[in-house]
């Protein structure tokens, strides 16, 4: 330890809040804490995986029979379940990330003072932000792997494997934003605001039907939704239809992730290092 570099002598405010170079090893120990906390409650984690699978099975049995085939990413017809499964995975990555970075983070920040304790050590706000967000992504990643395995059984496309890194990116984006938002909440009842934001994203981000269903006048609104970019990216990957627009989708999600990490770090610094 004691490895922090000492080269900068007079950092400005930004460097004080975001001195990445000084926080070696930090995020890892924050992730390690979460792993210890959850080492005993791994059973609860199973539920995070069960939810999308239950959806998937419901769609397979119900809508699958009712809807039949729809137009897939390349325009070719695909089974409705194959159409909806990648979107469900994107949505569950979002839900998992938001869940993991809202109430638990709020609790640690406002009540348990876990972050205050961390800041008394060499760790800084960036370590906390990256550590907590990474944990959400790791946890979400475990679910996506399980989901993809089930999905490959149902849908049978080997491209589905590409969905795992895509799901991690979606998790990262939403975990970052979710954690940043959580730092603004003052009471548990305000979590309803977040639910209020997430619910329409879940329903209207071209999750259950193609974006072409919407009239042109509101389509842009759908395209503003971060989940829409996750859904489109994953739907394309699952169908094996790669096209340049995917770079845009990846860019949007990566930008969200970066903004979220920076905002979270700044907020934790502002709240706890007064």
């Amino acid at each position: 330890m004691r490895t922090m570099d000492t080269t900068q002598r007079a950092p400005g405010l930004v460097l004080r809040i975001l001195p990445f170079g000084r926080y070696t090893r930090g995020p890892g120990s924050v992730v390690e804490r979460s792993m210890r906390v959850h080492s005993r409650t791994w059973v609860i984690m199973v539920s995070g995986f069960a939810e999308p699978v239950v959806y998937l099975v419901a769609f397979q049995i119900g809508f699958g029979a009712l809807v039949g085939q729809v137009a897939g990413p390349g325009g070719q017809p695909v089974d409705y379940v194959a159409f909806v499964a990648p979107a469900l995975l994107a949505a569950s990555a979002m839900n998992g990330a938001i869940f993991e970075t809202t109430y638990p983070v709020f609790f640690k920040l406002r009540y348990a003072k876990v972050y205050d304790a961390m800041l008394a050590t060499p760790l800084g706000p960036v370590d906390i932000a990256l550590g907590e967000i990474s944990w959400a992504v790791i946890r979400g990643g475990a679910y996506s792997v399980a989901f993809v395995v089930v999905m490959m059984g149902l849908v049978g496309s080997p491209f589905a494997l590409l969905l795992v890194p895509a799901a991690l990116l979606v998790s990262f984006a939403f975990a970052s934003v979710g954690m940043a938002l959580s730092t603004f909440l003052r009471s548990p009842s305000q979590f309803d605001y977040i639910r209020l934001m997430v619910m329409p994203l879940f329903l209207f981000s071209a999750t259950f039907y193609p974006v072409s269903v919407y009239p042109d006048s509101v389509r842009w609104l759908v395209q503003v939704s971060p989940l829409y970019h996750g859904v489109e990216l994953m739907r394309g990957l699952a169908a094996g239809v790669l096209d340049p627009s995917m770079i845009g989708h990846i860019g949007v999600l990566a930008a969200l992730a970066a903004v979220g990490v920076a905002a979270t770090s700044r907020r934790i610094g502002a709240l706890l290092l007064g």
Partner: peptide, 19 residues
């Protein structure tokens, strides 16, 4: 101001309220 993490590595803190 500049060496916070290095200082914190060498001190121990017992806050007013147990955290």
């Amino acid at each position: 101001e500049t060496d916070g993490p290095r200082i914190r590595a060498r001190i121990g803190v017992v806050p007013q309220l147990d955290n």
